[in-house]
Design a binder for these strands. Sequence first.
DNA 1: CGTTACTGCTAACTCGCGTTAGCGGGGGTC
DNA 2: GACCCCCGCTAACGCGAGTTAGCAGTAACG
Lengths: 355, 355
Amino acid sequence: MTNRRATSADVARLAGVSRTTVSFVLNERAEARIGAATRARVLEAAEQLGYRAHGPARQLAEGATRTLALVLRRSAEQVAMDPLLPETLRGLTDTARAAGYRVQVAPLAAEPGLVLDLLRSGEVDGLVISGPRVEDERLDGLDDPTIEELPIVVHGSLPGSALPSVDVDNGAGARQAVDHLIALGHRQIACITNAPLGYTSARERLDGYRAALSAAGIPHDPRLEAIGDFDPPSGGRAMAELLGRGVDFTAAFVAGDSVALGAIAALRESGRGVPRDISVVGFDDIPLAAYVDPPLTTVRLPARDLGAQAARVLLDRLAALTVPARTVLATRLVVRGSAIRPTVAPAPAAALMGR
Amino acid sequence: MTNRRATSADVARLAGVSRTTVSFVLNERAEARIGAATRARVLEAAEQLGYRAHGPARQLAEGATRTLALVLRRSAEQVAMDPLLPETLRGLTDTARAAGYRVQVAPLAAEPGLVLDLLRSGEVDGLVISGPRVEDERLDGLDDPTIEELPIVVHGSLPGSALPSVDVDNGAGARQAVDHLIALGHRQIACITNAPLGYTSARERLDGYRAALSAAGIPHDPRLEAIGDFDPPSGGRAMAELLGRGVDFTAAFVAGDSVALGAIAALRESGRGVPRDISVVGFDDIPLAAYVDPPLTTVRLPARDLGAQAARVLLDRLAALTVPARTVLATRLVVRGSAIRPTVAPAPAAALMGR
DNA sequence: CGTTACTGCTAACTCGCGTTAGCGGGGGTC
DNA sequence: GACCCCCGCTAACGCGAGTTAGCAGTAACG
């Protein structure tokens, strides 16, 4: 049965009224008072025909699509590896839906500028740009001076951009992690970043690590820092690099749980036990963090909330409300089993510099 | 600057031609030959005004939105726990985009029937329904006899439905896993499902497990079967249940990696080592499977491909091509460290039935 | 009884684009 | 020179809604 979709004209005809009346009834426009009998006739006709307003037509007439786009700006591999994406997406879609908005997912396109076209073509009312890198800013025209007029919110950080952003407090989170290690008694603490430093989250977490050391009066040794790159293998490589440098450490802050798992695997391979020989604190609290061995002590990143807040800010902006330039969500240290007090005399080469 | 979006009329005016010509030029309609000079003028005018065709208007005129929806039919928690969702989404969006389609994500709504409204309202041209349960079928009107006319493809299985589906070969995958254990020398093999049996994937994987046992002439003992429920804690509970039943086993097939991690944690807590005392084979090959301890031997589920194939089938269907009723993707056993030969005499209570 | 006010509804226009039918005009053919 | 054809372009309509202005009809009021 290839019978056409019912239009509002069909409903009007069946109910013996005009299209205008149908529109008023179905959209429950209070200011246009419609008689109860007429309203009932219209509703019944609509029901009978299984009428649903045509989306594009409505969008055209209203000048809005009630659709948000989530732009994933990381590479295919990084997106695939992001265990928190489902949670973030959930927060975003739930909040959007509650406001009557849909959510479109747009992986980063090859062609620059295509992102803004989503807005320019009116296919979407607003954009959530996730995980941008500083260098990419220019590529997609996001450095356009008029950009701040546009309904865009950055999920993450984009320093120097006038766009409102929603992010977790990476610096404070890293401090929580490292402070925890220090409180446990560690003095020689390594750090592996979650990503290259072009990503602001990596930069901020590294800075948090340094700030924590500095606050505790622990001298900062660049040989205890290595760069991770989202996935476990990068963590393994970084850890191997740290071990190869010959500088002792009793603990490591690995600024991403996925990276941390690779680092832990590398430690295991080198014959070191976690947490017995080396304590590890991660960052993100991915869903499986509690179920690996050892259970990962980590910093919880409120992914769901991040998504929800990003949607919230964007929706507020679309409602022409004034919106905070920056929304920062707090992290929380989740203590599990991968970090303990340092054993009394573990290091083969005695480290004499700490106190 | 609140200057209006440029319309095709603006472009036409600036180029000194009609809107029709603008449309022909920009849509590169070959059959309407446009002079090179005119074409150039139009292109330059469009460029100068930064013109982008208005999405909804175009969709209305063309009668198609070029948008697909991915309907996630599992609960919020299950979606958040799905480590493969990003990969699936990636396969879907990439394939869709290559064909000029966008992808919308629609979490399962509270209201039944809402799913089909996406289609009925013309907001979306086609639907990929992910992970349906048999019982839900009726809820969303998916049992409507005319449903098979609609551009919908099921990602997973929905027995009794006329909708085309794309799924992994769960039965064969489970057999690969259990055959591997049998080949290693195990005879007492337990099974924990990935989900309640209302999910067809759980049913099929359990059946595959039984088939493998049966093929090897190993009697099937219902006391060695337990039900998981997507997340690690459910795996822990299921494993505790199995251990509590007092029936010895040297290996377990846990039909979902997330569930397996919980099961392994439970084994550890009970003092048993994996794989030393008990071998474990999982299913899914989640991104972190290779990086947990022990590295998980598991059955690889081609998530990216599943998404891509689902998109492919849906796009073909939209192109009015005939489409296979069922697309089944093969799995592949990935041997890592969590399953080894059984140790010679491990079981405290000698099991005399095997052999 | 005439005027006003209000209720209940509709005609007609708008949104921006795709598209069919068709119209001038230049070049070729016989 | 009359005819035809095709190139290059445009007028006008349709997609399916939302919405403004305004028109009948009735009730209230003086």
